[in-house]
Design a protein around this nucleic acid. Structure first.
Lengths: 136, 136
DNA sequence: ATAGGTCTCATACTAAAGTACCAAAAGCCA
DNA sequence: TGGCTTTTGGTACTTTAGTATGAGACCTAT
């Protein structure tokens, strides 16, 4: 929120400066008025692009970024999380084991713990819940 | 692509008109030059916002909209697709059956056909592939 | 040193998931 | 109406998934 105020403050400042500059430049005859207008147009075009991109980016982040805090809250260990990623890649327990260089038994243990931590009955449900919690 | 050309054509036209108008207005003394500058600034600001939003929106569509054509190409039937949605909700075959008012056997048949059509070995893999193909 | 957490793995089950094959009813369309 | 696809459902069987339990190895903090 403080950032937004800062940005808008700078924006207004830049706007005022541009106004003064344009007045000065045109009156003193140093610059062609068309060039001043072009500069203003370009500057404001990019201000529009920049502000828009920033506001949209926030939404993207909200819907795409991984919620690391939630993972901690659920007490999901590093290994369990790796297994979760394997599940979301559509791998079987055996394949996950091969990928992580552990036995299928170990993977089953991790999956079982994961399911109870996510309060899921199946791995597909775990995926759905994990996506909901934005931890995946 | 034709749309893009049209938009840019109109943009350039608007730009030229604005230039002419500003020159005329300032010279004839009908308008204060500051007002002209302000108008130009606002117009280009919104052009920037608009173009940016449009280009970002395309990406959003690409990453969020369902590819109905792909579903047809894969010859996935309506019922099979409903089962696929059930899978992505993390439901078991039995639960999908209850939701669609059919037996578990029927769901199994649909799932089996779905897997072969999506070239998947497991339901989790089917989900991953379906997301990749943007049919889910 | 020991208590607690993580990671590993095994065994023995039970429960789902998935395959293969068959078959009937329903809907559509030429 | 005959042929086609879809939908439905069953049986029988194999393969994964998931649970419960126990146990050893390894870290870390007290």
């Amino acid at each position: 929120m403080k950032k937004t105020i800062l940005v808008f403050g700078l924006l207004i400042l830049a706007l005022l400066l541009l106004f003064q500059f344009s007045k000065y430049a045109v009156i003193s005859g140093n610059l062609n008025s068309e060039i001043v207008i072009a500069i203003i147009a370009i500057v404001f075009f990019f201000i529009g692009v920049y502000l828009n991109k920033k506001s949209l980016h926030k939404q993207d982040n909200n819907s795409a970024e991984i919620n690391h805090k939630k993972i901690e809250d659920l007490a999901i260990s590093k290994r369990e999380y790796e297994v979760l990623l394997g599940i979301s890649d559509g791998l079987s327990n055996k394949e996950i084991g091969e990928k992580l260089f552990v036995s299928e038994s170990t993977v089953k243990t991790h999956v079982s713990n994961l399911l109870s931590k996510l309060n899921a009955k199946r791995r597909t449900q775990a995926l759905q819940i994990a996506k909901d919690l934005k931890i995946i």
